[in-house]
Amino acid sequence: MSRIKVLLANRPRLIRELVMATISDQPDIEIVGEIQEEVQISKAVEAVRPDFLIVALEKSNRLSGICQTVLRSFPQIQIIAISSDRNSSMCYWASLHIESHQIECSEAGVLSAIREKTRPMNRPQ
């Protein structure tokens, strides 16, 4: 079985490393890259073609321009945004428009968002 590929790009570093600790313990999920700066995202996505991109959640809950472009260019990718200080996280994906829904800001919440991608029709709207 091929593993789900995740690219980590969230800041700050400590939160990224904590998320990495959780994901790297999952046998069915693989971390295919870690980047520190948002400007590197497009290039990295192009190179490693992840199933999921993990970024920091903006205060406004809006996706950055770079991430919106990534979703439009690679509609098969989904983005999970994790807050560093609030208890909040979101999942974004592109269909006709960019869609999003809140996910539980917990290990279980993030992991099930990653695993449920295989069944996108079940996703709550």
Binding site: I15, T22, D85, N87, S106, E107
Partner: peptide
């Protein structure tokens, strides 16, 4: 921790 994901990950580590 205010951030539940952070708390769970630290506990894991």
């Amino acid at each position: 921790c205010q951030n539940r994901l952070a708390r769970e990950s630290i506990a894991r580590i």
